[in-house]
Design a protein around this nucleic acid. Structure first.
Lengths: 112, 112
DNA sequence: TGACATACCTTGCCGCGCAAGGTAGGTTCG
DNA sequence: CGAACCTACCTTGCGCGGCAAGGTATGTCA
């Protein structure tokens, strides 16, 4: 009863974060709000999603973290490494595959 | 620590099955193969996904089951009830929202 | 007889995504 | 100076969705 590979629909938060960070360096709290913005409120990831994903991406070498004091408060800025760029490419391709597959299914005539 | 509402990316198997069954009455084993077909191999749902979803949709009144002997073997054909049609509409709308949100995020310029 | 396809089903579990809660500094305002 | 609220970071705990695996039974064809 092994659960070998991840469910086919997962990994979207990861995809979104990598994509955002490709455009510019950002910190967690900022990302939480940016996600709502760029997805036109369609998707809202809480901090309980964002921070863990950030940490795991850093651990796997897809992101680099840089602590930076701003106004006497510390922010952790993340930027995408080459490894992260690769990962983004893989996730994007997979997303395209899956979503266009679903689109195809939905696009079929209502009655055969 | 309550888990109130379902994760934003879930319910795709349900969506797919309802959509297929809208086109014609089908039985489980047939659906397993149909999903691969209509999604151009992009998505493959095993029987361990399909049957439980079928049962839960029936329990909730979205599907009606009809046992029908074919070649001395019994098949269970499922068809969509009005309730199921409503559910399909809701799921489709939600999928459109989410997937176009992601599309928007992915479509942004690589560097700001 | 064995192998393979059809056709149904359930069990068990992994891990994603999430709500909730916790810490701490900054500002604003009465 | 306390209260209320925003910024900014974090972890804990868990529900449940999706899945692999395994189980039953009939049909069929070499």
């Amino acid at each position: 009863m092994a659960q070998t590979n991840p469910p086919f629909m997962s990994g979207v938060p990861e995809l979104l974060l990598l994509r955002l960070l490709t455009q510019r360096e950002m910190y967690g709290y900022e990302i939480v709000k940016a996600v709502r913005l760029v997805t036109s409120e369609a998707i809202s990831l809480g901090e309980g999603v964002v921070y863990p994903v950030l940490h795991s991406l850093e651990r796997s070498g897809a992101l680099r973290a840089r602590r930076k004091p701003v106004n006497g408060r510390t922010r952790v800025y993340y930027s995408v490494t080459p490894k992260g760029t690769q990962r983004l490419a893989r996730l994007t391709a997979e997303w395209d595959r899956v979503s266009s597959g679903i689109q195809a299914a939905l696009g079929e005539p209502e009655h055969a």
